[in-house]
Design a protein around this nucleic acid. Structure first.
Length: 558
RNA sequence: GUGCCCGUAGCUCAGUGGAUAGAGUGGCAGACUUCGAAUCUGUUCGUCGGGGGUUCGAAUCCCUCCGGGCACGCCA
């Protein structure tokens, strides 16, 4: 999967290295270690196709002026080994390369050959990575924060896959622990109320209407016979019933949101297999725990954390933290993932350091875990921010959102900003201006191309393709953007930010629309027309691939 | 109080050591007898939160202060 662009860049980097070595051989300067040579694309066209700042990196190491070094590199640079036409020194010591005009056209050949795979690389070398996201509590429906996590997590999984990783998408079902207890108490109270028994509702219980609905339906099916049951027993029955319903609903909603998981991992399974107890014992055996006030503590402070944390409470019930350690050990050791990426809300950021510390303590490197912390979504309604709480039951659910703004818009919108940006979701605006949503801008470009290709049915198969006819600024600029796709995807992986792909999509669409208004595809000049048809086809491939990554439809008509 | 995230155009955000800080949106002025005007073109808009420092060069790195969010539990 060697793309034209990477070959062209590599040649230049190699030749810059050679030039520096030649200068050293001639005794112009000395250098113990050569820093990495980076080629960047200059903002201004006048500075050529690529530039490097290497001459400005070297003064410290060589004790020579940057311009002197730049001149040495340029005078030793052998253009014939590259696609370079012109080398210039500019500003404080930039070396700017202008390429021969024909080089970009082979990008179009790359795209045509790889088609639906264009953009894929072997960057990840098949390393196994687990992406865990949303992992909403199954005690109720998913909310807008989960929607953001879903768009980010699924997008992240896609760019990893496109970069040559072996990816597993996973949902961690928190079906154990304290909140399940509360869930059971809430269900029980509603059941009794539904059946005419006056009881007080638990103060910190789940107040959402969904709890009552569950128990209404349950009563219709099973009647009121549980009124006289043992409390503990009936709670378990209610929990099992409602949990299954909720998980079903979560799967259904996520299907409507375009997200399919490979693995649904039950927290409760970690207790069934005793993995939680085993991991606590393993930490103890390694000497990283102690007892205090009847509880077992993890010595997180030994691993750079600010305070220690409880693993097992004084009532012998393990904490969520203990289960989470067992879960990550299960991912990284039992199942052998090389890398675990979790998407968490900002309210959990304090958990990151101790989680990594625990993995270090267990002898697995905490570096194998990366957590994408996304800032919380704040809901704005009628200009006012609304607090959302599952227990208060006043939230906007994922299915509400999809119903109002549509799957594509929601997916696009939640991947518009980088995860760490604070995000105000103005519901009124999203509903009211849904036609102005940028998702349509990108989809429109795809539909427009499809329309063009539908209409240009004239048989051009006898005409040879001559890409060099595509020589306007708009055409060349468009081709350059198309060439970036594989690197944009890799950058999204490196920065752990799939929203880069959304912005890239808009960039492609924008350049296409500009081209469309400047150049006519249908012309009397059949050779030119053929070349433009091929260009337009390439744009469609890139748009489609990008929309696949984002989980958004690429419509042929709209 | 301590830790983390954020502060860039009227608004929403890119840019995290390079050249004259960019998009979208809004405002203004234009472009369809011609491949889809859900589009395009031009134009307006900046104490990069304030101050100090590091260096050839800082929105970007360091220090400090201000403002907003989150966390600091034997909750998850």
């Amino acid at each position: 999967m060697a793309y034209t662009l990477s070959i062209v860049k590599e040649q230049i980097v190699e030749e810059v290295k050679n030039s520096i070595e030649k200068a050293i051989t001639k005794g112009e300067f000395t250098l113990s270690e050569l820093p990495e040579i980076l080629l960047e694309t200059p903002r201004e066209k006048q500075f050529g196709d690529f530039s490097t700042n290497i001459a400005m990196q070297l003064p410290k190491l060589t004790k020579k002026a940057p311009r002197f070094i730049a001149e040495e590199i340029v005078s030793n640079f052998d253009k014939s080994k590259t696609e370079v036409e012109k080398v210039e020194i500019a500003g404080p010591g930039f070396i700017n390369f202008t390429l021969k005009s024909g080089w970009i056209y082979s990008i179009l050949k790359d795209i045509k050959e790889m088609s639906n795979d264009y953009g894929k690389t072997d960057y990840g070398k098949g390393r196994k990575v687990n992406v865990e996201f949303i992992s909403a509590n199954p005690t109720g429906p998913m909310h807008m924060g989960n929607a953001r996590g879903g768009a980010i997590g699924d997008g992240m999984a896609k760019v990893l896959y496109w970069s040559g990783y072996e990816v597993v998408k996973e949902f961690y079902i928190n079906d154990a622990g304290n909140q399940i207890e509360k869930f059971g108490q809430s269900l029980e109270a509603r059941y009794l109320q539904v059946n005419g028994v006056e009881v007080e509702f638990p103060e910190d219980g789940y107040k959402g209407e969904d709890i009552t609905i569950h128990m209404n339906e349950f009563t219709q099916i099973h009647g009121n016979k549980y009124v006289d049951y043992d409390s503990r027993e009936r709670r378990e029955i209610f929990i099992a019933y409602a949990l299954e319903k909720n998980i079903e609903k979560i799967k259904e909603d996520l299907g409507g949101y375009g997200i399919e998981y490979d693995v649904w991992f039950h927290e409760s399974s970690l207790y069934e297999t005793d993995e939680v107890a085993k991991i606590v014992k393993e930490l103890s055996d390694r000497g990283h725990t102690y007892e205090k006030d009847g509880a077992i503590w993890f010595k997180a402070t030994d691993f750079g954390c600010e305070k220690d944390d409880v693993l097992v409470r004084n009532n012998d019930v393990p904490t969520y933290f203990a289960a989470d350690i067992a879960y990550h050990v299960n991912k990284l050791r039992t199942r052998g993932f090389d890398w675990s990426i979790d998407v968490w809300g900002a309210d959990h950021h304090g958990h990151v350091a101790r989680m990594k510390a625990a993995l270090d303590a267990i002898g697995l490197s905490g570096d194998k875990l990366d957590v994408i912390i996304m800032q919380l979504v704040r809901l704005v309604r009628k200009g006012e921010t609304a607090r959302m709480s599952k227990r208060q039951g006043n939230m906007v659910t994922l299915s509400d959102l999809i119903e109002e703004v549509g799957k594509d818009a929601a997916r696009f919108f939640f991947n518009l900003r980088s995860p760490e940006s604070h995000f105000d979701f103005d519901l009124d605006l999203a509903v009211e201006e849904s036609n102005d949503n940028p998702v349509f801008y990108v989809q429109y470009a795809h539909a427009r191309i499809s329309s063009i290709l539908r209409q240009l049915e004239e048989d051009l198969s006898n005409v040879d393709v001559d890409y060099t006819l595509l020589d306007t600024d708009e055409e060349k600029e468009l081709i350059r953007i198309l060439a970036e796709l594989p690197y944009e995807i890799i950058t999204a992986v490196e920065k752990m930010d799939p929203s880069r792909i959304t912005r890239y999509a808009m960039d492609v669409a924008s350049n296409f629309h500009t081209f469309y208004n400047a150049c006519r595809v249908r012309t009397d000049d059949k050779k030119l027309m053929k070349a433009r048809v091929e260009l337009v086809k390439s744009v469609r491939i890139v748009l489609k691939n990008v929309l696949v990554i984002l989980g958004i439809k690429a419509p042929e008509r709209m």
